[in-house]
Amino acid sequence: MIPLISPLIFRPSVMRRAAIMAAIVGCMIAVINHGNHIWAGTMSPVGWIKVGVTFLVPYTVSTISSVLALQEQGRLIAALREPTKDQTPAAPGSDLQNT
C-alpha cells in the first residue's frame, strides 16, 4: 500500500530528478500543445497557466516513480537481511576452529 504522502518526495535526489524530467518533458508537451500560440505571440494568461500546469504532470509522474522505486529497494534490502528458513543462526563460538 502506498502512503498518501511519503517523506521520500522531499529527498533532494528525488526532487532534482523530477525537476529535470519536468523541464525536458514539460517543454516538449508545452510546444506540442501550445507552440503555435507561443510562436505567434497570441498566448492568453489562461494559456500560460495551462503551460505552467503542463510542467506539473511530468514532475508528479517522476516523483511517484522515484518514490515507488525507493520503497521497493528498501523492501528488497530488508528481505536480503532477513535470515531464510534454511539458515539457522550459528551457535556461539561455532566459528572457532578446533586446533
Rank of each mutant, 00 (worst) to 15 (best):
Y59V: 02
I32N: 02
P7M: 03
L68H: 05
R16T: 07
M1N: 11
I9G: 01
S94R: 12
W48Y: 14
V53C: 03
V46I: 14
T84F: 03
S13A: 15
L4Y: 05
R75L: 10
M15Q: 09
P58I: 05
A90N: 04
W48A: 05
K50M: 06
I77L: 14
G52V: 09
Y59W: 15
P58C: 04
L96E: 14
R16M: 06
S65N: 09
N98L: 11
N33P: 00
P3E: 12
A91K: 09
I20E: 00
S94P: 11
I32G: 00
L96Y: 15
R17Y: 06
Q87N: 06
T88I: 15
L56I: 09
G35P: 06
R16C: 02
N98K: 10
W39T: 09
I38Q: 05
G52E: 10
S62M: 13
I5P: 01
A69M: 09
F10L: 14
G47N: 07
V25Q: 02
G26P: 15
V31S: 05
R11A: 03
N36R: 14
G52S: 11
N33C: 05
P45L: 12
K50G: 01
W39L: 13
V61K: 00
S62H: 07
Q87M: 15
L80M: 13
A23V: 03
T60N: 10
R81I: 06
V57D: 04
L70V: 03
A69W: 10
I29L: 08
R17N: 04
Q71S: 04
K50E: 04
